[in-house]
Design a protein around this nucleic acid. Structure first.
Length: 705
DNA sequence: CGTCTCCAGGTTTTT
DNA sequence: CCTGGAGACG
């Protein structure tokens, strides 16, 4: 265990105070790079050292990444097993609470958690039933509205009341299917605590010390959740300048509320930056100063001035990618840096493609964190849907996804009929389906994939449909039996074989078996992740339920093994809390950052948030920062395979302007990368290539390339 | 009644 | 490229 006796020398006075103040309410305003993680880690270590039991501590974070990071740092520092320490995201903690007591609210404990996609299909389905016309159904917008309603950000008014019925239908659907959505993971525990003070008390008795990281990103609901749980020892850590989730309900004014709700708050400001060079910090300050509504802070650095910030205006996104790679390669060589010292930041995931392609073609190892979540991939969702239906038969949304995947003769008409039955009886599709069969209970135990279902005579369904339904029921019930107990990974693998999913994939894309293989590979890595999870000694109860509960809240970062030696590629949002020696901000163009859509919808407030994003991006860098802004960019750059230009020239993309935030960086800190140079280099290369061609031709005709 | 094929659109950030 | 939807086909 690290020696804590020397804390005073290891920490600056403010940090020291934050670490030592374990009792009462404390608000730590931690500027970027001010050693926040260090303080949190030391603080918890200190608490454990003082004899506060692990089980009394609850640390809530916003992302899984942060939770994991915090836990591993504490582990490393204390060298203790942390079996009883709770470090968790708000959502994951909500799941934990619900798993215990959701029955009090009318759900069963094998509830499914619906992600956005699931939610949207439920809305769509409900809308169809309620006969909303297609034009009125902008699912994307409605999904957002429902979330706002549920979390109290919006109320019904004349403008949106037309969706009220749909909302109610949606809610009924959730309950009927024994499912909850992401928002429910916070709102339902709150409801539970309100309606059952005894349950709340149980938690209050246990968690005497609560800590919330990234406090500026908590929503009202999350704040309320925390407030209910907390007794008197509450530490919140945050930085209003890094609040970048207001679009999801985050409100840094919670900081103000906190001071109101908890008397005698001790406020500590950490303003010394240990991370970045003076240049980088000054640039960051220059940018963030333009925001009007912020707590005044004066971040300062004892580090040297460092190297200038390099700004480059490449022609297009391909040139940008080349530029990044060139820099990485040259710095890696001259400064003996590992690839993992580099990070490329983007505003949106869609920017990653050209960069990834360039990395691939140059054989530079990279990891992309975030991105379209692994669990959003179709093939993964399919398998997960099977597992979900196995664990919760009433989960209609997931059932619909797989009932005819692979094909088993259950089409639109059959489903409509089933739906009819389900509606009449207020039951799930599963029950509707089951009502066409009687089960031979005696044989059921013995022969799970055999003939245990007897059809009830029915004119409603064709023989094919009946066969399909029987097959499906048997698969699910067989799966249920098969997937109980331990050795989940192996069993899932067997199950995937059982349903012949690979054949299905091959059938889906007959022209490219490669695509099918790739998808199968993803499934293998899903299975691998199950294996990793269940063989982890920290996993106490490796059941299918627990696995499913967990994964909906994960992105793929959370199970990929630590990547060393790879360039990091991620969105700015995903980079929060991280730092890297060399950082690239790609696509620093107006309309990307600030994002056009954000500005359009949110006006000035949105610009301020985008500025904070830019600030977060800048402050990830320790030594060197590169910023690039393309002069032209293709919006959806995927087409264009064969390089030969025969198509119309408009393919060059739209013209772009450099981000307005670039102007907010003091010029004296910036060094412009000469675009001309690169053009020259290109031309030089062309000339050289021509020369080589000319030179070679006569000598070895046919071999010139 | 189910499946196959062709077509359009791609939606900012994440739990 | 990838997905989801509409409409034709058998």
């Amino acid at each position: 265990m690290t020696d804590l006796s020397d804390l005073k020398n290891e920490l600056n006075p403010e940090q020291y105070e934050a670490v030592m103040t374990t009792e009462g309410a404390i608000l730590i305003i931690a500027g970027a790079g001010s050693g926040k993680t260090r303080v949190i880690t030391y603080r918890i270590a200190n608490m454990l050292n003082k004899g506060i039991p692990q089980s009394a501590i609850l640390a809530l974070t916003f992302t899984n990444k942060a939770a994991k990071e915090m836990e591993s740092r504490i582990k490393e520092m204390t060298q203790k097993k942390l079996q009883n320490l709770t470090v968790s995201t708000f959502h994951a903690f909500g799941v934990k609470v619900l798993r215990q007591d959701i029955d009090k609210l009318g759900w069963r404990d094998n509830f499914s958690i619906y992600d956005e996609t699931d939610r949207n299909s439920l809305i769509k389905e409900t809308g169809r039933e309620l006969k909303y016309t297609d034009e009125a159904l902008d699912i994307y917008k409605i999904g957002g509205l429902f979330s706002d309603i549920k979390t109290g950000r919006k109320t019904w008014n004349s403008e949106n009341s037309m969706y009220k019925e749909l909302y109610e239908g949606y809610q009924e659907g959730l309950k009927l299917f024994n499912a909850v959505d992401f928002d429910d993971l916070i709102t339902l525990p709150i409801q539970l605590f309100r309606e059952h003070p005894d349950i709340l008390q149980k938690y209050k008795d246990r968690y005497k010390y609560i800590m919330v990281d990234e406090f500026q990103d908590t929503s009202h609901q999350q704040y309320e959740f925390m407030r209910l749980l907390s007794d008197k020892n509450v530490a919140v850590v945050g930085d209003d300048d890094q609040s970048i989730y207001s679009w999801r309900g985050a409100d840094y004014l919670n900081i103000v509320n906190f001071e109101k709700d908890f008397p005698n708050v001790k406020e500590i400001k950490l303003e010394q930056n240990y991370r970045s060079t003076g240049t980088i910090l000054e640039a960051a300050n220059g940018v963030i100063q333009h925001n009007t509504n912020r707590k005044e802070k004066k971040l300062w650095s004892g580090n040297g001035e460092g190297k200038p910030i390099e700004v480059y205006y490449p022609d297009n996104e391909a040139t940008e990618a080349d530029f990044i790679i060139e820099c990485i390669n040259s710095i890696a060589l001259t400064e003996k840096r590992k690839y993992s010292d580099f990070c490329v930041l983007m505003r949106s995931n869609s920017q990653s493609r050209p960069i990834e392609e360039a990395f691939l073609s140059e054989n530079i190892p990279y990891t992309m964190s975030g991105g379209t979540s692994f669990f959003q991939r179709k093939e993964i969702k399919d398998i997960i849907s099977y597992l979900r239906v196995i664990s919760n038969h009433d989960d209609d949304v997931n059932l619909l996804r797989i009932i005819n995947t692979p094909r088993r003769g259950i089409g639109r008409v059959t489903l409509e009929k089933l739906n009819e039955i389900a509606k009449e009886n207020s039951c799930s599709l599963w029950d509707a389906m089951k009502s066409n069969f009687t089960v031979d209970e005696e044989n059921a135990e013995v022969d799970l994939f055999g003939e245990v279902l007897t059809e009830i005579e029915s004119d409603d369904f064709s023989d094919d449909a009946m066969d399909g339904m029987r097959e499906f029921i048997e698969i699910i019930e067989g799966g249920k039996n098969m997937l109980g107990g331990h050795g989940l990974a192996k069993k899932v693998k067997a199950f995937v074989d059982e349903i012949r999913y690979y054949d299905h994939l091959l059938g889906e894309s007959p022209k490219s078996p490669k695509a099918a293989q790739y998808k199968m590979m993803n499934i293998e890595s899903l299975i691998k992740s199950i294996d990793v999870w269940e063989s982890n000694p920290d996993t106490t109860d490796a059941t299918l339920y627990n696995y499913l509960n967990r994964i909906t809240l994960l992105s793929r970062d959370d199970y990929e093994e630590e990547d060393t030696g790879k360039v990091n590629l991620m969105t700015i949002h995903a980079s929060k809390g991280l730092e890297f020696p060399v950082v690239f901000i790609a696509g620093a163009e107006d309309d990307i950052i600030p994002h056009a859509r954000a500005v359009e919808e949110g006006g000035d407030a949105a610009v301020e948030e985008e500025r904070r994003l830019f600030y977060v991006a800048i402050t990830r860098a320790r030594d060197k920062l590169y910023i690039s802004a393309c002069q032209r960019r293709r919006r959806h750059s995927f087409a264009q395979k064969d390089g030969d230009a025969q198509g119309p020239v408009q393919d060059a993309g739209n013209e772009c302007k450099p981000s307005r935030f670039l102007d907010e960086i003091p010029k004296s800190l910036v060094q412009y990368h000469e675009p001309a140079k690169v053009v020259e280099a290109d031309e030089a290369k062309k000339i050289l290539d021509d020369m080589i061609k000319k030179f070679r031709k006569p000598i070895v005709p046919g071999f010139a390339r």
